[in-house]
């Protein structure tokens, strides 16, 4: 297993290299560049724009720019934001902490909601199943930014005493920090909980028809024990995979939900940076997101092997 993890990590480096190159090229393929975005107008003299580009090294050939960036990145130097002139690593890390908190709360909410509705749907069938599936269908169809907008509107309208927007740092006010993240986390979690719910439902229904469940019932085991040790433990593998992918996506940050709730997370930062063509920041965020996806996938595989002894890593 150790060897597998090391091999995986080596692979990760290759993946990150590829991702960083593609991101680098694509960003520069976008119309406009930092010089234009920063000065904001066409009326600026071309010499001024050239000056900015030269200063930032944007006038050099693309490959040269990439190699310079890569050389520094390998030593842990992700450069300086064009906009803030702050080191990228520090600012992105601060933003990531915010997104991480939000993703964590959203993931917990989705797993709790999804498990309850999925299990109820599969075990109770009938009307419960029907209602859960209908609600799931609606929640899956409605994009999270609409949910977020509705939450902001409705809560703002009927509970004006709650501060909905903005972010309170954990260290200054832990309770306010978590309370402030609950609504955006809810907006993010609805669609994810549908994935969890539908996967649990399908997996439990499939496992329920397996012979070993009949054997468990023939043993006289109580319903709870059959559910826990026979149904859920066997249904867990597909659920872990689907949930892992969704959680990875959450960790990448949500541009829309973070923007709507004015949360200074990584998604919002990425959005700002793309607008201002702040290449070093974009590059760092994309790299971090890719690293998270690969890491979460590895954790999912390890969890897999833990749940099911037939899986060999």
């Amino acid at each position: 297993m150790k060897r597998v993890i090391l091999t995986r990590l080596a692979w990760t480096l290759g993946i990150l290299l590829g991702v960083s190159f593609v991101a680098f090229v694509l960003m520069r393929a976008l119309p406009g560049d930092f010089a234009i975005a920063a000065t904001g107008a066409q009326s600026v003299a071309p010499e001024v724009l050239e000056g900015i580009r030269r200063q930032l090294g944007l006038d050099r050939p693309l490959i040269e720019q990439y190699v310079i960036w890569l050389g520094k990145a390998l030593t842990g130097d992700f450069g300086v934001s064009f906009v803030t002139r702050q080191p990228v690593a520090g600012t992105v890390f601060d933003r990531f902490i915010v997104t991480f908190q939000l993703a964590l709360i959203a993931a917990i909410m989705s797993i709790v909601m999804g498990s309850i509705t999925g299990l109820a749907s599969a075990r109770l069938r009938g009307a419960t199943d029907w209602i859960v599936r209908m609600v799931n269908g609606v929640m899956l169809a409605v994009p999270n930014y609409i949910v977020a907008t509705l939450i902001v509107l409705l809560v703002g309208l009927y509970f004006p005493q709650f501060a909905i927007l903005g972010y309170t740092p954990f260290l200054s006010d832990p309770v306010g920090n978590i309370a402030g993240l609950l609504l955006p986390a809810l907006a993010l979690s609805l669609a994810v909980s549908v994935t969890v719910s539908e996967n649990i439902r399908a997996a439990v229904l499939e496992v329920a028809n397996q012979d070993f469940v009949m054997v468990a019932r023939a043993k006289g085991l109580r319903r709870g024990a059959v559910l826990r040790d026979y149904l859920i433990r066997n249904a867990l593998t597909p659920v872990v995979t689907a949930t892992g992918l969704k959680v990875a996506a959450l960790l990448g940050g949500s541009i829309l939900v973070e923007t709507i709730f004015a949360i200074p997370g990584m998604g919002q930062y990425l959005y700002e940076s793309i607008n201002s063509r702040d290449y070093p920041v974009i590059q760092a965020i994309i790299l971090l997101t890719a690293a998270i996806v690969v890491l979460v996938n590895m954790l999912v595989d390890i969890a897999y092997a833990r749940i099911d002894a037939r899986v060999r890593l």
Binding site: Q210, D211, F212, M214, V215, Y230, R233, D308, R310
Partner: peptide, 11 residues
Amino acid sequence: FQDPMTSLNPV
């Protein structure tokens, strides 16, 4: 039961 291959809980 009839089928021992599927009658035991694999996990």
